[in-house]
């Protein structure tokens, strides 16, 4: 069964039809590259998947569960928009890496990763902290050595249990940073990093939420050519660990090399889709041909 199933997505901005019925599916562990010229609706499509925009029509299903149904949404009059909690749960199926990174500038690299998961487990974390504080206060009051030892033992057991959640998150954050090769920068602030490093942090930040599908919105378009490589390398490595990804990109060689499936979009419709071989070497549509030709001349 496909992990992601998109059917008939339509989206208008005022009078402009941006998406005119997009449908495709993604298998687990598959990497899909979406290519096309500017204004073809690639970014809007990704934003609809992440519920930053709401499609007027069409359905989005993940693992067989219909997350979004444009027609019923319209009937229910923006119901989805209003139920904040539900919306958040649905968003967590997807991760999104932005063109402009959008790291939190006031937080260190580590805290950028930790913020969302700690807020998510806020309750557990608060309980753990409270338990530790209480035990420490008791420790101060303890008179005999025996009493102290007993409390210390209890503290160890209890906090190891309560803290496991927080510790788990921290461990995972460190492991994720390691994966993108930035563990040594964990205490730096985003402003101290290069663009490529910032984008790798952004990827790690998206990964830590365990999304079913990780989306990239032109992840290298804001980067110097020499920094593009390090970001693409990370995406390549993610492919090896069976991460399902949708990558909107202008890097044709990368798309050809990494993608399992390529989707070419033009004027809000999928003009052509298939494996990279077919799309790049033997394009059927005239539009695809002229797009690829214009790319080669650059």
């Amino acid at each position: 069964m496909a992990i992601l199933e998109v059917k008939g997505i339509k989206k208008n901005f005022g009078q402009t039809e941006v998406l005119k019925g997009i449908g495709f599916s993604v298998e687990k562990g598959e990497v899909v590259a979406i290519i096309g010229s500017s204004g073809s609706g690639k970014t809007t499509l990704l934003r609809c998947l992440n519920f930053l925009e709401f499609a007027d029509e069409g359905t989005i299903s993940v693992n067989g569960e219909v997350l979004y149904d444009g027609a019923s949404e319209r009937q229910a009059k923006k119901k989805l928009k209003n139920s904040d909690k539900q919306l958040r749960r649905k968003r967590l199926h997807f991760g999104l890496v932005f063109q402009s990174f959008n790291l939190f500038p006031h937080k260190s690299v580590m805290d950028n990763l930790l913020l969302a998961p700690t807020l998510q487990f806020k309750k557990e974390v608060r309980q753990a902290k409270r338990a530790e504080r209480a035990a420490k206060a008791k420790l101060k009051k303890a008179k005999t050595e025996e009493e102290k030892q007993a409390i210390e033992l209890e503290l160890k057991e209890k906090t190891s249990l309560d803290y496991s959640c927080l510790a788990e998150i921290k461990e995972k954050a460190a492991a994720t940073l390691e994966r993108v090769g930035l563990l040594d920068k964990k205490n730096s602030y985003p402003c101290e990093l290069s663009g490529g490093q910032q984008q790798r942090v952004a990827i790690a930040r998206a990964l830590i939420m365990n999304p079913d599908i990780l989306c990239f919105d032109e992840p290298t378009s804001a980067l110097d050519p020499e920094l593009t490589g390090e970001v693409l390398k990370v995406i390549r490595e993610l492919k090896n660990t069976d991460t399902t990804m949708i990558v909107v990109t202008h890097e044709m060689e990368f798309a050809e090399d990494v993608a399992d499936k390529v989707i070419f979009m033009a004027n809000g419709v999928i003009e052509e889709e298939g494996n990279p071989e077919e799309v790049f070497k033997r394009p059927k549509s005239e539009k695809t041909k002229s797009f690829l030709a214009s790319r080669k001349n650059v």
Binding site: L52, R91, L92, F94, L103, M209
Partner: peptide
């Protein structure tokens, strides 16, 4: 972008 980044991370 800051709001969107927080939104896609599931923050309220």
């Amino acid at each position: 972008g800051q709001y969107e980044a927080a939104a896609v991370l599931g923050m309220s």
